[in-house]
Design a protein around this nucleic acid. Structure first.
Length: 877
RNA sequence: GCGGACGUGGCGAAACCGGUAGACGCAACGGACUUAAAAUCCGUUUCUCGCAAGGGAGUGCGGGUUCAAGUCCCGCCGUCCGCACCA
């Protein structure tokens, strides 16, 4: 008997699959009646090398893809590269290699590694977003979105790194400093290209309800991110203003003298108002700061204040009286002061609030500090109007309105409606909806991204690049030796003539945020060869939406939201139909692979293979000194707690890696990579192979019938287990319970190993059948091993192209069930009865059971509960 | 602060609709085979009382509903995640 040799077997089958072109997705015409299944894992950024931690995501997608293929679906399971991005430029700066070279070298290495995993991928559809053949369509799409009004330009505040001369994403600002330069980040107003995501705010929110195959958690996060609030805009008339602000003549309008708009969700509390507060960078605050040094100082102080969690927690509510007075919308004689306050955000609503201290904790803190009136207007349910008072804690819940003139006695809900009615009647306000969601700023001052196809002309303004001139390709000869945008520094690239007037003009040197690249790649996969269009409309209509998307929860908001925006944009530009507008019908967010971290005595991170366990303690192989075993964390290069994929595949094989990452924990939870776990998976592979090799041919010869005895005793029991397992694993894969499916495989293998009696023909037949079914069941998980077993058992050509086994209902259903008998809820015995046995028969048998009888003697039986095929409970006392 | 998820043996976990808690794996222990080790095979393994048969307790804590609760309800405690001065 030979050991299973994965080093020979795995490459052999990968080669055979490739020759047979087994995993090519069929065109709609080739597919005929086959239903389609588009299975996709979030495509990787080519950062360097793959470690076993990355493999979990692809393995899960692969299990689904192989399972669907076996179920008779026309499967699209593609792979590509999210290839633009900052690390390539950093590498260019540090190592003097061109970002393109660095990226493509990584792609080549990672492609080879991914292929080692034996994924059922249609490699003919491979794409890289940095390929002009990809991004030229993205540029065309950008122009189409622009035409449709989904792209615009706007001055916006950005994080600016003054050393690197570039905009930083929020994630790249650490403690207020640039992550690379360490320089304090400045806020700058820059002209930015924007995507009008908010145009779809309502649809993006409402459609979340239809995404019933997405995790609730992700749906909730998206809903929170969009953050819809309904309420009212109220315009507060200015009653007094400092004399230095422009005076108004009759009928004249002025920015500084116009009514101040305020957004609120609680117009019902208007009679509790005692002040207005403006953001420090509200236009009126700024206008006043120009004349009042104390206000200017306050504004400067607020600008310095950090926005980190801890700082906000500590920050005191502070403000300054601006000397402006406004009139209450419901009573022109009621005059309220206007403050600038540090807790008001300029970026939400209109950058101004009205303070109603009894109903808002911040307003209350502020009112107490500046001795402003606190009038309770909401009476909590059951509270007494005569005694209810607000001291240090605001009452923010709903209740009954009082102290509020015409709103008195209404519920808060009704009072909101009534107040808005009144505001509209008086022309002082209107009902409105606010979103937390902002439009998407996509300008990046970087080289390694998709150039924005626009030209700036002194005469014609901002002009789109004509489609015939696409792609706007990146220049190869950029230099990376100085900070800032290489496209900006390039001596010639940006100088062009204006497509409209022919005069001198310059190219836009900003490139697109790389999230744009990944917002439509799943659509490109449906027709990646198309040279004239991003994709053929019919191909996209056929394949989309993606039936199963698999990826990390870290993309729960940005990537998934942007993609949902993009499908809507593409639809409205006529590129595809997709009535739902939803790109991903089902989403699964998988957990990470985590591993212990190791530090040497000198405090250096150590790779797992640089250590060893000796006498129960982990030691540093280089020094022999004990290793500091740290936290179990997500595998990452920086902490060196990674296991390289190539080396692992050489040592143990791809199947062991695939099996292990799915076996120990539920797929949505993290799994810890351990030596022991790996050994267990390895043992299982060997065990399956030994059983198969030992058994030999299982395929029936033509005309061969099951031997007598296959339908009774141990043989029947094994066949029943095998068919039950088929049914169970089918359900488990369908519902992403891979770890449970794995456990069922172990159970079946244990049973097969026990059922060995070569003189019992019936049992050997059952054994062969069980091995065949086992082989098919493990095929999505361990395709190489499964192929080798399939061949050994005498089947052909591929288990990977064999139809998924169907459980024989007669065998999968058991005809005898063991029922536990409880007395007063405690298990006291068990009986065996035929499945579906009538209740009275079960009752009699239970009462007659000897073990049970002992607990019944001397007691009155009050009730006997029989749950058919489940349990019997006898109530005594 | 707001929102959400979770809490089960030494460990990862299972228990899908309220119906035998701990499947399966890891680790540990005992045994077989072996000159020995590895590998493999057979067994034990929630805690507790007991020689045993058998009993008692047990799913973070405290209550409740039910014939029956890991599962449902109420209140705590703890861990993790998301958002965060959102008016």
């Amino acid at each position: 008997m030979s050991r299973y040799n994965h080093r020979e077997v795995e490459p052999k089958w990968r080669d055979k699959w490739a020759r047979a072109d087994l995993y090519r997705a069929l065109s709609p015409t080739e597919a005929k009646d086959k239903p389609k299944a588009y299975v996709l894992e979030m495509f990787p950024y080519p950062s360097g090398r793959i470690h076993v931690g990355h493999s979990r995501n692809y393995t899960m997608g692969d299990v689904i893809a192989r399972f669907r293929r076996a179920m008779g679906f026309n499967v699209l399971h593609p792979m590509g590269w999210d290839a633009f991005g900052l690390p390539a430029e950093n590498a260019a700066m540090e190592r003097k290699v061109h970002p393109r070279e660095w990226t493509y070298a990584n792609i080549a290495a990672m492609r080879d590694q991914l292929k080692l995993l034996g994924l059922a991928i249609d490699w003919s559809r491979e794409i890289a977003t940095c390929d002009p053949a990809y991004y030229k369509h993205q540029q065309a799409m950008f122009l189409a979105f622009w035409k449709k009004g989904l792209v615009y330009r706007k001055k916006q505040k950005v994080n600016w790194d003054p050393v690197d001369n570039t905009v930083l994403a929020n994630e790249q600002v650490v403690d207020g400093k640039g992550w690379r330069s360490g320089a304090p980040v400045e806020t700058r107003e820059l002209e930015q290209w924007m995507f009008r995501v908010t145009a779809y705010a309502d649809d993006l929110l409402d459609a979340i309800e239809t995404l019933n195959k997405w995790p609730d958690k992700v749906r909730l996060m998206q809903a929170n991110w969009i953050g819809k609030s309904q309420g009212a805009n109220i315009w507060w008339q200015i009653a007094e203003a400092p004399s230095f602000l422009p005076q108004l003549a009759e009928g004249e309008r002025s920015h500084a003298r116009d009514p101040i708009p305020v957004f609120t969700t609680r117009p019902d509390t208007l009679f509790g108002a005692s002040f207005l507060a403006l953001a420090p960078d509200h236009p009126l605050t700024k206008a006043i700061a120009e004349h009042r040094p104390d206000v200017a100082a306050f504004v400067a102080e607020c600008a310095q204040l950090g926005t980190s969690e801890a700082e906000i927690e500590k920050a005191e509510k502070k403000g300054i009286d601006l000397g402006v007075r406004v009139r209450h919308p419901f009573d022109p004689d009621w005059i309220l002061p206007v403050y600038a306050a540090n807790f008001v955000l300029s970026t939400y609503g209109s950058g101004a609030i009205f303070g109603s201290p009894a109903g808002d904790q911040r307003d209350l803190d502020f009112a107490r500090k500046y001795n402003l009136p606190v009038t309770p207007v909401v009476l909590p349910p059951g509270a007494d109007a005569a005694t209810h008072a607000i001291d240090k804690v605001a009452y923010t819940e709903h209740g009954t309105i009082y102290n509020s003139r015409f709103l008195d006695g209404l519920s808060t809900r009704d009072a909101i409606k009534r107040a808005i009615q009144e505001l509209v009647k008086l022309g002082r306000g209107e009902a409105t909806t606010q979103y937390r969601l902002r439009d998407w700023g996509v300008s990046r001052q970087r080289y390694w991204g998709c150039p924005i196809p626009a030209i700036h002309c002194a005469k014609c303004g901002v002009v789109p690049v004509p489609e015939k001139d696409l792609p706007v390709a990146l220049p190869d000869d950029a230099t990376f030796d100085k900070p800032g945008n290489p496209l900006e520094h390039h001596p010639t690239w940006k100088h062009v003539s204006c497509p409209q007037c022919g005069g001198k003009a310059t190219r836009e040197t900003d490139t697109l945020d790389t999230f744009v690249d990944s917002s439509w790649y799943y659509a490109r996969f449906t027709d990646p060869w198309n040279e004239t269009k991003p994709f053929d409309k019919e191909a996209a209509n056929y394949w989309l939406p993606v039936n199963q998307y698999v990826g990390g929860v870290e993309h729960a908001v940005l990537h998934l939201l942007y993609s949902r925006f993009f499908t809507r944009g593409m639809r409205d530009c006529g590129l595809l139909d997709l009535p739902s507008g939803e790109p991903f019908a089902a989403l699964f967010t998988q957990g990470m692979v985590v591993h212990e971290t190791y530090k040497s005595a000198a405090g250096q991170w150590l790779l797992p293979e640089e250590t060893e366990v000796k006498d129960g303690a982990r030691i540093d192989l280089a020094t022999g000194k004990p290793v500091d075993v740290g936290a179990i964390e997500k595998m990452s290069k920086s902490k060196k707690n990674v296991v390289d994929l190539d080396a692992f595949v050489t040592d143990f094989g791809a199947d062991v890696a695939r099996w292990f990452v799915l076996s120990d924990s539920p797929p949505e939870r993290d799994v810890e990579w351990t030596e022991g776990g790996v050994q267990g998976a390895w043992r299982f592979v060997q065990r399956v192979w030994t059983l198969v090799e030992d058994h030999g041919r299982a395929a029936p010869k033509p005309g061969e019938a099951p031997p007598p005895g296959a339908g009774e005793g141990d043989a029947l029991a094994l066949r029943q287990l095998a068919h039950r397992t088929v049914k169970g694993i089918t359900d488990d894969i369908e519902s992403f319970r891979f770890n449970v499916a794995v456990a069922k495989c172990y159970e079946l293998v244990n049973a097969i190993a026990k059922a060995k009696d070569t003189n019992n023909a019936g049992l050997m037949f059952a054994r062969g059948e069980a091995l065949k079914l086992l082989t098919q069941l493990i095929a999505p998980f361990m395709p190489h091993l499964a192929e080798e077993c399939w061949e050994k058992l005498g089947f052909e050509p591929f288990v990977s192209s064999a139809p998924w086994p169907v459980a024989d209902p007669a065998l999968a259903a058991t005809n005898v069930v063991t029922l536990p008998i409880q007395v007063n809820g405690k298990r006291r015995g068990e009986i065996e009865v035929a499945k579906g046995a009538p209740e009275n028969e079960v009752r009699e048998k239970a009462l007659a059971d000897a073990a049970v009888a002992a607990f019944l003697s001397g007691q009155t039986i009050r009730k006997v509960i029989v749950v058919p095929d489940r349990i019997v409970n006898i109530v005594v006392g």
